[in-house]
């Protein structure tokens, strides 16, 4: 049975092809020794878009994300982010580029010895000359924005998994980056918390115009938040589909894409 599109998406329409491109990935190939994870993956992400990288386990989604955020160099290919060549940037130029986007890691990656407020304050203290009072106000407002206004003094170990991910989004947004990367935001969360996180992503995209690049394989989340997706496949060692996920679900004739969107188990 085809899952219904969750109602949270409303009448959202993603930016059209005329929108400026914030990420352009060309011919990305990643190999580990003789094992090719994917090759010749090319795509672009438009400003204001919620862009999802999806695929089954082991297809290279998280590896692709690591390439995009500069934690790993691809075996071949080029990546342009916010108009800068990510792979050519080094030293201070690279650090400046990294500060222009935020990342939420799969486990949140909040600093365990700091409160939520201190976690969000860290990038503000490190990279701005704002007075302490202003930094505090900004950090509080970011936490309030993700629904953690009453948990500012808590440590990461004192809050739930969903709250950790919200706090990680608040920290990633601290410097108001135009681009946010989220790694498996729904992983390990119950359906209600996961739906709340989807709603938050849509709200931030609509109200702040933030561009999201999200790695996930949660079908409900994909159908709710994604304007456009690319699908990676382990067997094909690369990209097998790109486009509006609702259209792909309805019209794709590619067997793996159909199986993914219609929840058909391979082993059956």
């Amino acid at each position: 049975m085809v899952p219904e599109i969750p109602p949270a998406r409303g009448d959202r329409v993603g930016p059209g092809p005329e929108a400026p491109k914030v990420i352009v990935a060309t011919g990305l190939t990643q190999r580990f020794g003789s094992n090719t994870v994917f090759e010749n993956v090319s795509f672009d992400v438009r400003e204001g878009e919620v862009f999802v990288i999806l695929g089954g386990s082991g297809c290279g989604k998280s590896t692709l994300l690591k390439l995009l955020i500069g934690l790993r160099r691809p075996t071949a290919g080029a990546i342009s982010i916010l108009g800068e060549d990510l792979l050519a940037a080094d030293g201070e130029k690279r650090r400046l580029l990294l500060r222009r986007f935020g990342v939420m890691f799969q486990l949140g990656a909040l600093f365990g010895s700091m409160t939520l407020l201190e976690n969000v304050l860290l990038p503000l203290e490190s990279f701005t000359d704002l007075p302490a009072e202003a930094r505090l106000a900004i950090a509080r407002s970011k936490l309030g924005m993700v629904g953690l206004g009453d948990a500012t003094q808590k440590l990461p170990s004192e809050i739930s998994g969903g709250m950790v991910k919200r706090a990680a989004i608040a920290r990633a947004m601290a410097l108001d980056p135009p681009l946010l990367f989220l790694d498996e935001p729904s992983a390990g969360l119950d359906p209600i918390t996961s739906a709340g996180l989807d709603q938050l992503i849509l709200t931030l995209a609509r109200d702040l115009g933030v561009t999201f690049v999200i790695v996930t394989h949660e079908l409900d989340s994909i159908l709710t938040v994604a304007d456009r997706v690319i699908m990676l496949d382990k067997a094909a060692r690369g990209m097998i589909a790109t486009g509006d996920p609702r259209e792909l679900r309805a019209t794709s004739t590619q067997p793996t894409v159909r199986a993914f969107f219609n929840r058909i188990a391979e082993a059956a």
Partner: peptide, 18 residues
């Protein structure tokens, strides 16, 4: 080591912090 396993070191790097 725990920070590395929890991706906190990666988080520092992507925040532009050394």
């Amino acid at each position: 080591g725990t920070m590395k396993v929890n991706e906190e070191v990666d988080a520092l790097t992507t925040m532009g912090l050394d």
